[in-house]
């Protein structure tokens, strides 16, 4: 059964951060269509700062905690606590593990998802990051013990989840005030969540032995 070493896997989070920083303008642009257009700015600020503080030797959980701390104590907004809880609760599951296998990874993702649900008040279908996160985590956990296949299933479900927000009407957050006018635009949180999960899957797959 394939696994990867926790030590040094903090670099996965640095790669995730690089994708977010690269997409700063795009995320702000789609947020601007139905929100206030600061999603990319705040995300890039938080992920960028965290990346500078993650070292090559960091475990995955240490890197996730670094990112979570920056998001919760320096970024704020809605995404600070949502992604802050996501990464903190994932880190709890893998703390102390030397090797991470497919089941541990699945438990980690599920804990992160539960953390987001606990702090927020959105439901699936409200046009939020949950519309990416729920199907992606479900797909990973349903894929069985083939780690690479589970990562591929997660990526495909994350992309489909992100795209599903295009035709949704926002029910929560700033965009909800638009009602029907929020239809036809991707949700910025669902989009950044897809970037995070996709980058995590890609970087994890490279490490599997």
């Amino acid at each position: 059964m394939s696994t990867f070493a926790n030590a040094g896997a903090g670099a996965i989070i640095r790669e995730v951060a690089a994708v977010i920083v690269e997409n700063r303008g795009y995320l702000s642009e789609i947020d601007g269509k139905i929100g206030d257009g600061d999603h990319g700015n705040n995300m890039a600020k938080g992920f960028g700062r965290a990346a500078e503080r993650i070292t090559d030797a960091d475990t995955l959980d240490a890197a996730m905690m670094t990112l979570s701390d920056v998001l919760m104590s320096e970024i704020g907004g809605s995404m600070g606590p949502l992604y802050g809880m996501f990464f903190a609760d994932m880190a709890d599951v893998i703390e102390g593990k030397e090797q991470i296998d497919v089941r541990t990874f699945g438990a980690m993702l599920a804990a992160g998802r539960d953390g987001v649900v606990a702090i927020g008040s959105a439901k699936v279908g409200d046009k939020t990051l949950l519309d990416t996160l729920f199907p992606a985590v479900d797909a990973f956990c349903a894929a069985g013990d083939d780690f690479p296949a589970a990562l591929r299933a997660m990526t495909a479900a994350a992309e489909a989840g992100r795209d599903s927000t295009l035709d949704m009407v926002a029910k929560i957050g700033r965009a909800s005030r638009l009602g029907e006018r929020s239809r036809g635009v991707l949700d910025a949180g669902a989009t950044s969540c897809c970037m995070i999960l996709t980058a995590m899957a890609e970087q994890t797959a490279k490490r599997l032995a």
Partner: peptide, 12 residues
């Protein structure tokens, strides 16, 4: 105090 149009952090 938060960023422009963005909530302050829980720590703040």
């Amino acid at each position: 105090v938060g960023e422009l149009f963005s909530s302050p952090t829980a720590k703040s």
